[in-house]
Each structure stands twice: as C-alpha cells, then as structure tokens.
Nucleic acid binder design. Structure first.
Lengths: 244, 244
DNA sequence: CGATTCCTTGACAGGCATCAAGAAACGTGG
DNA sequence: CCACGTTTCTTGATGCCTGTCAAGGAATCG
C-alpha cells in the first residue's frame, strides 16, 4: 500500500492499522507545489483548510503593528500544519514557504470525518499536539529567561534533532536554510546580534559553517549553553488505545 | 445530573450528551485539596496522572540551571492540567498551587478509555489543546518582540479575559493573586521592572490597584499597548462531529 | 553580470537587569 | 488581637546586554 508522508510519521510513534494509514493518506490527495516565499495562509483570513507538509519547509509567524515579526514555528516534511485554525474561524498566524515546498491542503471536514471514524488517530493527534505544546514552552523559557547565545544554541539543537527524526543520515551537520534574520525572528533577537553570537560560537569551536551548512562540533557544550533538552527520546505512547 | 467543573467548561463550547458529561464527571471522582505553595508535580518525575483543576489556581513552570524560573501557564478552575505529560513519561514541567486549590487527579488510562469511548470528546480535547497552543504562541510573540510595558499589559488582559470565561460577574476588575515576581517570571522580566511598569501604568490611568485587586481603566489603550487580541471571541467549533 | 539579498563589523544608545535598602503588607503563634 | 518574622512592594543608582544605525563585502539569483 502506498502510504503518505504523514502516516509514516505517525507510524513512527505507534503502529497503525492499514485502514488508519489509508485514511491518513486520503488527507494528502491534493498535493500542491508552492514556491519559496509564497504565502500559504494570511493572518486573519477565513480558514477552512489545514495542511500536511510533504516536502520543503514552511514557517508560521505573526507580524506586530510596529512591523517586527515573530516566527512561531518552523515546519518540516511530515508535519501537520495549521492546527491553530482548527478552533478559530480566522487564521491566528500566517504561513509562508521557506523553500520550494509541497503542501497537501485538506478541509476541516475531512479532519472531522477522520476524528469521527478513527478515534485512535484522534487520540494520537491530541498527543502530538501536546508534544508541540512542550516544544513551544521550551522556546518560551528560552526567550523569557536565557541569553542570546543560549537561545541560538538551543535553537540550532532543536532544528537538528527535529531533522534527525525523519532523516537518519544526519550525524552532526545539517542545512539550516534560514537567514540570520529568520533565526532572530524565531528566538527574539535582531539579525545583527544573531550574527555576533554565531560568529562567537564558531570562534569557540562550538559550531562551524560551510556554504549554508551548519556542523555541530561540541554538542555537549551546546546543550549546556542552551539549557537544551532533547524531548524526542522520552516519548511514551504505549498507554494509547490498542490496535484492533 | 451532577456535572463536573470540566464537563461544564467543555459544554460551553459544544453541547455534550449526558453520557459524555457523565464520563467527564468520572475524571473528577477523586478531588484532592492542596495548600498554597504545594508542589503537585515535580519536573522529571515519572508521571501517570493528569489533573482537572476544580478550585483555586495552579501554575506550571520550569527552573533553569541558573535558578531562574519561567512560568509557562497559569491555570484556572475547569482547566485541564498536565496534558504535556500525556506524551512524556517524565514531567517536562513542575506544577505548584498558587492558592489553596482542589485538583482532581486521574490516571492516563482513564483518559485512554475516555478517548476510546467518546471520540467526540477526544476531538474536543484536541481542539482545546490547539487553543492553548495559540495562547502560547501569543505569549511567545509577546516575549520575543514586545517591550516590558506591552508584556505586562497583554498579560493582564489575558488573565482578565480567561477569568471572564467562567465568571460573568467580572466587568473591569479582578484579583490577580500573583506576586510581581510571579508576573515577571511569566513574561520574562524581573520583579523590579514589573513594579516599575505597573506603577507607570497606574500613573497613566491605565489601571488602578486596591488591596491586590486590579482594575482595568482603559481597556482599549491597554490592548493597543500590549498588541493584545482576545482569542475567545472567535472560536468556531461548529464543524465538530455532531451529537447523536 | 548586474541587482538584490544576505552577511559582517563598528560605534553608539537604551531598556532592562542587578544590587541594595527601606517601607508596607501579610501570616502566624502566643 | 497584638507582636514579630517573613514576604512583597517600592525606589534609586549603576551597568551590561542587546538593539539601532550605518556601510562595505560576499553570496545568490535571474
């Protein structure tokens, strides 16, 4: 059976039945290519669609009245995007493609049917949205209580570990594919200061860079500096409803 | 039928069947009193329990290695607490009672049965956890991109609007029941600077205070200063699975 | 290969933290 | 119900971390 990106991702956490996989695959029936920089969803627009990201990278963000931007989340292939708009009729955040990407839009009502017919999938979605919640609180603590250097360190580690979930070939380096301005907008700094911190970490041998690729040279110290915890190691979904 | 605090809360969003209400009520079968300051859950502890808060106030937080604290969320009666630990075996955050409180602990497995038997409730929980997600991203933008004064303003408005969801008698004033240090720990400031901002807002006639009670005197300007959006107005759960 | 975006670096400024200390409010036990 | 210890609030002085402004260089894109 051809399974979807999203089904594969969920199946990494708990075994899924064929029927469940098939239902998840149906969410991805309408893939759509979008170009780097394309606006997928605009804040305050009426929304009836959600997305699964199949390829590329997408970010969610808000723009404040003074023009500054806060990036809320960076999404990778297999991620479920737009859950925020399940509960609001108007989008609370904008979505833009960070690279050329393939997104699979589906209607709220398709999600409704899925939740209705596959309670186990509903439970799983609930749990994964709680995992994302924890990711957000981690960054909240980072912004609220740590230095610029710590924020950069934990941000790099976070992206690194998230990429590694779906790509086993990654060992110590990865393509960040974010400008320093975007990094700053994600962790509450200016691009200028992000640059200073990255440069400093490079000089100290914590990381190195080569044409857009970041290599983590001293992960232990990076984790210490960033007060970073890898949350992916400690997941426990065994108590979920069993497969029939 | 005696309904629970939690069922009442959920029923504000969508009508619930009697069976659903009864199932939710069962989650609150074991109320437990806790004193102000009591630790309900310690970070990194093994967790198998979740909670419904019936009375009083509770906060979740983390302590960083340098001793600083980030308050992640303040909870009010009817809130579902500890969803973070649905997916992790060890608690990612600590829980402490901010006032004398009544909490209703229940086991992960009780939640499992609920999700299994009442898919509509599962869907509802999923949606509400997405609403909390949005609340967190709002605060993320606040910490990342706004001034101290803006953070205080939006924090006060947020607490105010959340209290009003369950208490219709509130018009323009409320008991904050948080020290200035706690406010600071929630919005990434020191207690000293929180004090300066509150004092300034008081002088400007934006708020006033009397024995622990805050009165919002100019809500329009507060919303403008804090770049605040009331999210409670725009909820739309009509597309949820229908009641049988 | 020209134009635009992105990176890099320096000088300077400002917002918020830190430290400190007294006043006020609160809680608790006698 | 008062007295006393503790917590919380308040205010000032000082300093640092990060922002702002600016400008040249590098890289990327069409």
């Amino acid at each position: 059976m051809a399974t979807s990106c999203f089904a594969d991702r969920l199946a990494k956490h708990v075994p899924l039945s064929d029927a469940e996989k098939k239902a998840l695959t149906r969410l991805e029936e309408n893939p759509r290519k979008v170009r780097r920089g394309a606006m997928i969803q605009r804040v305050n627009e009426m929304v009836t669609e959600l997305f699964v990201l199949r390829e590329g990278r997408v970010m969610s963000f808000v723009i404040l009245p003074d023009g500054s931007r806060q990036i809320l989340r960076v999404y990778f292939p297999g991620d479920f995007i737009g859950s925020a708009s399940t509960i609001y009729s108007r989008a609370p955040e904008s979505l833009v493609a960070l690279s050329d990407a393939i997104i699979c839009p589906f209607d709220k009502h398709a999600l409704r049917r899925l939740l209705e017919e596959y309670p186990r999938v509903a439970a799983l979605l609930f749990l994964l949205s709680n995992a994302e919640r924890v990711a957000l609180t981690d960054r909240l603590a980072s912004l609220g209580r740590t230095s610029a250097k710590a924020r950069v360190a934990s941000f790099l580690l976070d992206i690194f570990d998230r990429l590694r979930v779906t790509d086993d070939s990654i060992t110590d380096s990865f393509d960040l594919k974010l400008t320093q301005e975007e990094i700053g907008d994600a962790i509450g700094l200016t691009s200028v200061h992000v640059n200073r911190m990255i440069r400093q970490m490079e000089q100290e041998g914590l990381i190195s860079r080569a044409n857009g690729r970041i290599t983590l040279r001293d992960m232990a110290r990076l984790e210490e500096i960033g007060h970073y915890t890898n949350r992916h190691k400690d997941m426990d979904l065994d108590w979920l409803p069993g497969m029939e």
